[in-house]
Simulated scan of single mutants.
Amino acid sequence: MGRHTVREGRFWHCRAELHYDDAGAGPLAVYAHGGFVSQAVEDRMGLFDWVPVLDAGHRLVRCDTRGHGRSTGEPVDTDYTYPSLADDLLALLDHLGAAEPVDAMGASMGCGSVLHAAVRAPDRFSRLVLLIPPTAWTTREAHARANRESADTIEREGADAWLAANGTQPRPAVVAEVPEFPPTPAEQVLPSILRGLAQSDLPSRTAITSLRMPGLILAWVDDPGHPLSTAETLAWLLPRADLHVSRTRTDIGTWGERIAEYLGRTLP
């Protein structure tokens, strides 16, 4: 990750060995990735640039979600709900010995993990950075239904049939040129991950309103899986929230610098 040495770590939690990358030094920030990828795949996609965060003097820990990348996972649907993944995130903080509140960042599925962890243990977090918030509340059911159907397809016809069907779907123009990679979870856990996500939603609006830490929300346009309505609602619900919407791939490339600047602000 640029000139910064990446240290690998791992710990056990609830039947899974969870692997993480640890780089930089300074105030701790943790990051949870989106569904079906991993830290290594995100790096190869070139979508998010974390070097500015490290250059600004932060320690960044990025964990492969259970069942993804190097982390193990069982074919248990409830292991992959947002609240269960929030448990893993809080266990990571325990493993790291995080005694002070940390900055937490999450993209898509990771956004759900971070928000549930923050609602459950608000004193453990100082700021939230939410990238491409997923479908939520009124827009969630159609996405959940598609996930359940995908799980059935994989069990009936195999993962290749699911991937072939997904390949016919148009991609948002803003990320149309980003390389695609096959899912990192093994085929035997993919249906459980999909069903776990189908059972998930962001915390209620009331629960989010109760949070007191500030937030930065980064979104892009024309993506039904990450509708702008979710990002706008979160910006309204969270105190002192900043919302930035990207309409080009070039502008998404500024997110690392925006996050670094945000994390460098003095908290009130």
Rank of each mutant, 00 (worst) to 15 (best):
E180D: 13
H95C: 13
T206K: 14
S210E: 09
P185S: 07
R120Y: 06
Q169H: 10
I217R: 05
A161L: 12
Q188N: 15
T153L: 15
D123S: 15
D201Q: 06
P179W: 04
A99H: 14
I217F: 04
R124Q: 01
A117E: 08
E180L: 14
W137M: 01
R171N: 05
H95T: 15
A118Y: 02
C111M: 09
L211P: 00
A117Y: 10
A151F: 03
L202F: 01
V114E: 03
W137Y: 05
N147P: 02
D201W: 01
V129R: 05
R212D: 14
A186D: 14
P134K: 01
A117N: 08
H143T: 12
D160V: 12
M213F: 09
A136Y: 01
A176T: 02
R124Y: 00
T168S: 11
A146I: 05
A98D: 07
I132K: 02
P134H: 01
W137V: 00
A136W: 02
D123I: 10
V102F: 04
L216H: 07
P185K: 03
A161M: 14
A98T: 05
T135L: 01
P183V: 12
A104H: 05
G196V: 09
H143Y: 14
H116R: 09
H116P: 08
A144K: 06
A186P: 07
G97I: 07
R156V: 08
P214Q: 02
I132A: 08
S113Q: 15
L211E: 02
S126Q: 14
P191R: 04
M105H: 09
T153H: 09
A117L: 10
Q188H: 15
P191M: 02
D152P: 00
R205I: 02
T206Q: 15
T209N: 02
E141F: 13
M105E: 10
M213V: 14
M109W: 09
L202A: 02
L197S: 12
I132N: 04
W137G: 00
A207T: 01
D152I: 05
R127G: 00
V114K: 05
E187T: 13
S150V: 02
G106D: 04
P185D: 06
A173M: 05
P122N: 14
L128M: 03
A173T: 08
P170Q: 09
P182W: 06
T135D: 03
G158I: 12
R140L: 07
R145H: 11
P172D: 09
A159V: 15
E100W: 06
L131I: 12
C111N: 15
